[in-house]
Design a protein around this nucleic acid. Structure first.
Lengths: 148, 148
DNA sequence: AGGCTAGGTCTGATTGACAGACTCAGCAAC
DNA sequence: GTTGCTGAGTCTGTCAATCAGACCTAGCCT
Protein backbone atom coordinates (compact mmCIF):
# COMPACT_ATOMS: atom_id res chain seq x y z
CA UNK A 1 0.00 0.00 0.00
CA UNK A 2 2.91 2.34 -0.56
CA UNK A 3 1.04 4.11 -3.31
CA UNK A 4 -2.00 4.80 -1.16
CA UNK A 5 -3.07 8.35 -1.82
CA UNK A 6 -4.73 8.68 1.56
CA UNK A 7 -1.47 7.90 3.31
CA UNK A 8 0.33 10.39 1.10
CA UNK A 9 -2.27 13.06 1.69
CA UNK A 10 -2.09 12.42 5.41
CA UNK A 11 1.65 12.86 5.34
CA UNK A 12 0.87 16.46 4.48
CA UNK A 13 -2.45 17.07 6.18
CA UNK A 14 -1.96 14.83 9.16
CA UNK A 15 0.58 16.87 11.06
CA UNK A 16 -1.78 17.88 13.85
CA UNK A 17 -1.56 21.61 13.12
CA UNK A 18 -1.65 21.63 9.35
CA UNK A 19 -5.42 21.87 8.98
CA UNK A 20 -5.61 24.44 11.71
CA UNK A 21 -3.14 26.57 9.80
CA UNK A 22 -5.11 26.07 6.63
CA UNK A 23 -8.33 27.00 8.35
CA UNK A 24 -6.74 30.29 9.29
CA UNK A 25 -5.56 30.93 5.77
CA UNK A 26 -9.00 30.11 4.38
CA UNK A 27 -10.33 32.52 6.96
CA UNK A 28 -8.17 35.23 5.49
CA UNK A 29 -5.42 35.19 8.10
CA UNK A 30 -2.20 35.23 6.15
CA UNK A 31 0.42 36.57 8.48
CA UNK A 32 2.73 34.62 10.70
CA UNK A 33 2.06 36.43 13.91
CA UNK A 34 -1.69 36.62 13.44
CA UNK A 35 -1.78 32.87 13.03
CA UNK A 36 0.44 32.33 16.00
CA UNK A 37 -1.64 34.48 18.30
CA UNK A 38 -4.98 33.15 17.08
CA UNK A 39 -4.05 29.50 17.21
CA UNK A 40 -1.47 29.27 19.96
CA UNK A 41 0.81 27.15 17.80
CA UNK A 42 4.44 27.29 18.98
CA UNK A 43 6.57 29.48 16.72
CA UNK A 44 8.88 26.76 15.67
CA UNK A 45 6.06 24.44 14.71
CA UNK A 46 4.30 27.17 12.77
CA UNK A 47 7.53 27.96 10.95
CA UNK A 48 7.94 24.31 10.02
CA UNK A 49 4.32 23.84 8.95
CA UNK A 50 4.32 26.91 6.76
CA UNK A 51 7.61 25.93 5.16
CA UNK A 52 6.32 22.44 4.53
CA UNK A 53 3.07 23.68 3.04
CA UNK A 54 4.96 26.04 0.76
CA UNK A 55 7.29 23.25 -0.27
CA UNK A 56 4.31 21.02 -1.02
CA UNK A 57 2.73 23.71 -3.14
CA UNK A 58 -0.31 24.19 -0.93
CA UNK A 59 0.64 27.72 0.05
CA UNK A 60 2.83 30.28 -1.62
CA UNK A 61 4.87 32.94 0.09
CA UNK A 62 4.20 36.39 -1.30
CA UNK A 63 6.00 39.60 -0.56
CA UNK A 64 3.86 42.56 0.40
CA UNK A 65 4.56 45.92 1.93
CA UNK A 66 2.33 48.08 4.00
CA UNK A 67 2.98 51.82 3.87
CA UNK A 68 5.50 52.80 6.51
CA UNK A 69 6.54 49.26 7.06
CA UNK A 70 9.27 47.13 5.66
CA UNK A 71 8.88 44.32 3.17
CA UNK A 72 7.20 41.26 4.59
CA UNK A 73 5.74 38.01 3.38
CA UNK A 74 2.30 36.58 3.59
CA UNK A 75 1.01 33.13 2.88
CA UNK A 76 -1.67 32.51 0.31
CA UNK A 77 -3.41 29.46 -1.00
CA UNK A 78 -2.43 28.00 -4.34
CA UNK A 79 -4.89 26.10 -6.51
CA UNK A 80 -3.82 22.91 -4.81
CA UNK A 81 -4.54 24.60 -1.52
CA UNK A 82 -7.93 25.91 -2.55
CA UNK A 83 -8.90 22.38 -3.51
CA UNK A 84 -8.63 21.45 0.14
CA UNK A 85 -11.89 23.23 0.89
CA UNK A 86 -13.97 20.06 0.73
CA UNK A 87 -11.60 18.37 3.16
CA UNK A 88 -11.75 21.26 5.54
CA UNK A 89 -15.51 21.54 5.34
CA UNK A 90 -15.92 17.80 5.87
CA UNK A 91 -13.70 17.88 8.96
CA UNK A 92 -15.50 20.94 10.20
CA UNK A 93 -18.87 19.28 9.73
CA UNK A 94 -17.82 16.20 11.64
CA UNK A 95 -16.21 18.22 14.40
CA UNK A 96 -19.29 20.41 14.74
CA UNK A 97 -21.48 17.39 15.04
CA UNK A 98 -19.50 15.45 17.60
CA UNK A 99 -17.02 17.74 19.29
CA UNK A 100 -18.58 21.18 19.55
CA UNK A 101 -19.34 23.00 22.76
CA UNK A 102 -23.03 23.27 23.63
CA UNK A 103 -23.25 26.78 22.20
CA UNK A 104 -22.18 25.51 18.80
CA UNK A 105 -19.34 25.85 16.38
CA UNK A 106 -17.13 28.93 16.36
CA UNK A 107 -17.00 28.89 12.58
CA UNK A 108 -19.66 28.71 9.90
CA UNK A 109 -19.16 28.51 6.18
CA UNK A 110 -21.76 30.03 3.94
CA UNK A 111 -22.50 30.29 0.25
CA UNK A 112 -21.54 33.64 -1.19
CA UNK A 113 -24.60 33.89 -3.40
CA UNK A 114 -27.38 32.91 -1.03
CA UNK A 115 -25.83 33.01 2.42
CA UNK A 116 -26.96 29.50 3.28
CA UNK A 117 -24.72 27.15 5.15
CA UNK A 118 -22.34 25.00 3.13
CA UNK A 119 -21.71 21.36 3.97
CA UNK A 120 -19.75 18.56 2.42
CA UNK A 121 -21.89 15.98 0.68
CA UNK A 122 -21.19 12.77 -1.14
CA UNK A 123 -22.52 12.34 -4.61
CA UNK A 124 -21.83 9.94 -7.41
CA UNK A 125 -20.94 10.74 -10.99
CA UNK A 126 -24.51 9.96 -12.03
CA UNK A 127 -25.67 12.81 -9.84
CA UNK A 128 -27.21 10.73 -7.07
CA UNK A 129 -26.95 12.12 -3.60
CA UNK A 130 -25.41 9.56 -1.23
CA UNK A 131 -26.90 9.90 2.21
CA UNK A 132 -26.18 6.58 3.88
CA UNK A 133 -22.46 5.85 4.21
CA UNK A 134 -23.32 2.20 3.71
CA UNK A 135 -24.28 2.94 0.13
CA UNK A 136 -20.67 3.60 -0.72
CA UNK A 137 -18.64 0.66 -1.96
CA UNK A 138 -14.85 0.77 -1.83
CA UNK A 139 -13.14 -1.03 -4.67
CA UNK A 140 -9.62 -1.36 -6.02
CA UNK A 141 -8.82 1.47 -8.39
CA UNK A 142 -6.69 1.56 -11.53
CA UNK A 143 -3.45 1.93 -9.62
CA UNK A 144 -4.12 -0.95 -7.23
CA UNK A 145 -1.37 -3.47 -6.83
CA UNK A 146 -2.20 -7.04 -6.09
CA UNK A 147 -1.03 -8.10 -2.72
CA UNK A 148 0.50 -11.58 -2.60
CA UNK B 1 -9.61 29.44 19.62
CA UNK B 2 -9.69 26.69 22.19
CA UNK B 3 -13.18 25.71 21.12
CA UNK B 4 -12.26 25.31 17.47
CA UNK B 5 -13.86 22.14 16.23
CA UNK B 6 -11.31 21.67 13.49
CA UNK B 7 -8.51 21.61 16.00
CA UNK B 8 -10.46 19.15 18.11
CA UNK B 9 -11.21 16.95 15.15
CA UNK B 10 -7.59 17.04 14.11
CA UNK B 11 -6.53 15.94 17.55
CA UNK B 12 -8.25 12.70 16.66
CA UNK B 13 -7.85 12.49 12.91
CA UNK B 14 -4.51 14.17 12.59
CA UNK B 15 -2.30 11.46 14.00
CA UNK B 16 -0.63 10.57 10.72
CA UNK B 17 -1.94 6.97 10.73
CA UNK B 18 -5.47 7.47 11.95
CA UNK B 19 -7.07 7.99 8.56
CA UNK B 20 -5.07 5.14 7.11
CA UNK B 21 -6.45 2.86 9.81
CA UNK B 22 -9.94 4.16 9.13
CA UNK B 23 -9.55 3.60 5.43
CA UNK B 24 -8.77 -0.03 6.17
CA UNK B 25 -11.79 -0.38 8.40
CA UNK B 26 -14.03 1.23 5.78
CA UNK B 27 -12.50 -1.23 3.35
CA UNK B 28 -13.70 -4.07 5.51
CA UNK B 29 -10.38 -4.87 7.18
CA UNK B 30 -11.18 -5.26 10.85
CA UNK B 31 -8.41 -7.32 12.31
CA UNK B 32 -5.25 -6.15 13.95
CA UNK B 33 -2.82 -8.22 11.99
CA UNK B 34 -4.49 -7.67 8.64
CA UNK B 35 -4.22 -3.95 9.16
CA UNK B 36 -0.64 -4.21 10.27
CA UNK B 37 0.44 -6.25 7.26
CA UNK B 38 -1.52 -4.17 4.75
CA UNK B 39 -0.40 -0.81 6.03
CA UNK B 40 3.02 -1.43 7.52
CA UNK B 41 2.14 0.49 10.64
CA UNK B 42 4.37 -0.47 13.59
CA UNK B 43 2.55 -2.68 16.08
CA UNK B 44 2.81 -0.27 18.92
CA UNK B 45 1.46 2.62 16.91
CA UNK B 46 -1.41 0.54 15.62
CA UNK B 47 -2.25 -0.57 19.14
CA UNK B 48 -2.29 3.04 20.29
CA UNK B 49 -4.33 4.29 17.35
CA UNK B 50 -6.96 1.60 17.73
CA UNK B 51 -7.22 2.16 21.47
CA UNK B 52 -7.55 5.89 20.92
CA UNK B 53 -10.21 5.46 18.26
CA UNK B 54 -12.17 3.13 20.52
CA UNK B 55 -11.87 5.55 23.39
CA UNK B 56 -13.10 8.37 21.16
CA UNK B 57 -16.08 6.33 20.09
CA UNK B 58 -15.09 6.11 16.44
CA UNK B 59 -14.53 2.37 16.55
CA UNK B 60 -15.86 -0.31 18.82
CA UNK B 61 -14.10 -3.51 19.80
CA UNK B 62 -16.26 -6.54 19.22
CA UNK B 63 -15.58 -10.12 20.23
CA UNK B 64 -15.90 -12.78 17.56
CA UNK B 65 -14.87 -16.37 17.26
CA UNK B 66 -14.01 -18.34 14.21
CA UNK B 67 -14.57 -22.10 14.34
CA UNK B 68 -11.50 -23.87 15.67
CA UNK B 69 -10.04 -20.69 16.94
CA UNK B 70 -10.14 -18.89 20.20
CA UNK B 71 -12.04 -15.74 21.04
CA UNK B 72 -10.72 -12.65 19.36
CA UNK B 73 -11.71 -9.06 18.84
CA UNK B 74 -12.36 -7.06 15.75
CA UNK B 75 -12.77 -3.35 15.23
CA UNK B 76 -15.91 -1.92 13.70
CA UNK B 77 -17.12 1.55 12.93
CA UNK B 78 -19.63 3.23 15.18
CA UNK B 79 -22.09 5.79 13.86
CA UNK B 80 -19.59 8.49 14.69
CA UNK B 81 -17.05 6.55 12.66
CA UNK B 82 -19.35 6.04 9.69
CA UNK B 83 -19.89 9.77 9.58
CA UNK B 84 -16.25 10.15 8.69
CA UNK B 85 -16.91 8.91 5.16
CA UNK B 86 -17.13 12.41 3.70
CA UNK B 87 -13.80 13.30 5.29
CA UNK B 88 -12.18 10.19 3.94
CA UNK B 89 -13.61 10.65 0.47
CA UNK B 90 -12.56 14.29 0.43
CA UNK B 91 -9.00 13.41 1.40
CA UNK B 92 -8.97 10.60 -1.10
CA UNK B 93 -10.17 12.90 -3.86
CA UNK B 94 -7.51 15.45 -3.12
CA UNK B 95 -4.78 12.83 -2.85
CA UNK B 96 -5.86 11.24 -6.11
CA UNK B 97 -5.71 14.55 -7.85
CA UNK B 98 -2.34 15.73 -6.66
CA UNK B 99 -0.40 12.83 -5.24
CA UNK B 100 -1.29 9.71 -7.21
CA UNK B 101 1.11 7.65 -9.26
CA UNK B 102 0.72 7.97 -13.03
CA UNK B 103 -1.34 4.78 -13.19
CA UNK B 104 -3.92 6.27 -10.87
CA UNK B 105 -5.35 5.72 -7.44
CA UNK B 106 -5.25 2.33 -5.76
CA UNK B 107 -8.71 2.83 -4.35
CA UNK B 108 -12.01 3.85 -5.89
CA UNK B 109 -15.28 4.45 -4.12
CA UNK B 110 -18.48 3.76 -5.98
CA UNK B 111 -22.18 4.16 -5.44
CA UNK B 112 -23.85 0.89 -4.50
CA UNK B 113 -26.92 1.53 -6.63
CA UNK B 114 -25.42 2.67 -9.90
CA UNK B 115 -21.73 1.83 -9.65
CA UNK B 116 -20.63 5.33 -10.52
CA UNK B 117 -17.74 6.96 -8.75
CA UNK B 118 -18.47 8.86 -5.57
CA UNK B 119 -16.82 12.19 -4.80
CA UNK B 120 -17.12 14.75 -2.07
CA UNK B 121 -18.90 17.90 -3.13
CA UNK B 122 -19.80 21.13 -1.43
CA UNK B 123 -23.36 22.28 -1.44
CA UNK B 124 -25.30 24.82 0.48
CA UNK B 125 -28.49 24.37 2.42
CA UNK B 126 -30.45 25.95 -0.43
CA UNK B 127 -29.33 23.11 -2.65
CA UNK B 128 -26.82 25.02 -4.74
CA UNK B 129 -23.77 23.17 -5.87
CA UNK B 130 -20.61 25.05 -4.92
CA UNK B 131 -17.95 24.56 -7.54
CA UNK B 132 -15.55 27.42 -6.99
CA UNK B 133 -13.96 27.39 -3.55
CA UNK B 134 -14.00 31.18 -3.67
CA UNK B 135 -17.78 31.12 -3.45
CA UNK B 136 -17.54 29.90 0.10
CA UNK B 137 -17.52 32.54 2.80
CA UNK B 138 -16.23 31.69 6.27
CA UNK B 139 -18.01 33.51 9.06
CA UNK B 140 -18.07 33.35 12.84
CA UNK B 141 -20.54 30.75 14.04
CA UNK B 142 -22.82 30.66 17.05
CA UNK B 143 -20.07 29.48 19.36
CA UNK B 144 -17.54 32.09 18.31
CA UNK B 145 -15.85 34.01 21.09
CA UNK B 146 -14.77 37.53 20.50
CA UNK B 147 -11.08 37.91 20.68
CA UNK B 148 -9.87 40.98 22.54
C1' DA C 1 20.44 56.22 20.04
C1' DG C 2 16.92 53.57 21.75
C1' DG C 3 12.65 51.11 21.31
C1' DC C 4 9.13 48.47 18.81
C1' DT C 5 7.54 44.85 15.75
C1' DA C 6 7.16 40.86 12.57
C1' DG C 7 9.13 36.92 11.82
C1' DG C 8 11.86 34.31 12.91
C1' DT C 9 16.39 30.93 15.57
C1' DC C 10 18.52 28.41 19.51
C1' DT C 11 18.19 25.42 23.50
C1' DG C 12 16.79 21.94 26.43
C1' DA C 13 12.97 18.90 28.30
C1' DT C 14 9.19 15.99 27.19
C1' DT C 15 6.62 13.19 24.14
C1' DG C 16 5.89 10.17 20.06
C1' DA C 17 7.45 7.06 16.26
C1' DC C 18 9.66 3.15 15.09
C1' DA C 19 12.16 -1.53 14.79
C1' DG C 20 13.12 -5.59 16.77
C1' DA C 21 12.78 -8.87 20.31
C1' DC C 22 9.89 -10.93 23.72
C1' DT C 23 5.16 -12.61 25.84
C1' DC C 24 1.03 -15.11 26.23
C1' DA C 25 -3.24 -17.84 25.39
C1' DG C 26 -5.32 -21.29 23.03
C1' DC C 27 -5.60 -24.58 19.42
C1' DA C 28 -3.37 -28.39 16.73
C1' DA C 29 -0.17 -31.84 15.31
C1' DC C 30 3.18 -35.08 16.82
C1' DG D 1 2.37 -33.44 26.99
C1' DT D 2 5.51 -31.03 24.71
C1' DT D 3 6.36 -28.56 20.66
C1' DG D 4 4.94 -25.27 17.47
C1' DC D 5 1.90 -21.77 15.35
C1' DT D 6 -0.96 -17.63 15.34
C1' DG D 7 -3.13 -13.36 16.58
C1' DA D 8 -2.64 -9.69 19.40
C1' DG D 9 -0.27 -7.70 21.77
C1' DT D 10 4.03 -5.64 25.50
C1' DC D 11 9.03 -4.18 26.44
C1' DT D 12 13.15 -1.74 25.24
C1' DG D 13 16.16 1.44 23.21
C1' DT D 14 16.93 4.90 19.55
C1' DC D 15 15.89 8.70 17.03
C1' DA D 16 12.82 12.45 15.56
C1' DA D 17 9.16 15.87 16.63
C1' DT D 18 6.78 18.96 19.87
C1' DC D 19 6.78 22.55 22.91
C1' DA D 20 7.98 26.62 25.96
C1' DG D 21 10.83 30.13 26.69
C1' DA D 22 14.63 33.04 25.71
C1' DC D 23 17.24 35.16 22.23
C1' DC D 24 18.09 37.51 17.56
C1' DT D 25 17.50 40.74 13.60
C1' DA D 26 16.06 44.15 9.96
C1' DG D 27 13.81 48.05 9.24
C1' DC D 28 10.89 51.67 10.75
C1' DC D 29 9.61 55.41 14.28
C1' DT D 30 10.63 58.78 17.95
Amino acid sequence: MENCTIARAMEILGERWTLVVLREVFNGVRRFDDMRVRTGIPRQVLTNRLAMLVEQGVLRREPYREPGSRLRHEYRLTGKGLDLWPVLVAVLGWGDRYLADPEGSPLAVTHRDCGAEVRAALRCAEGHEVTDPRDVLPRPGPGARRRV
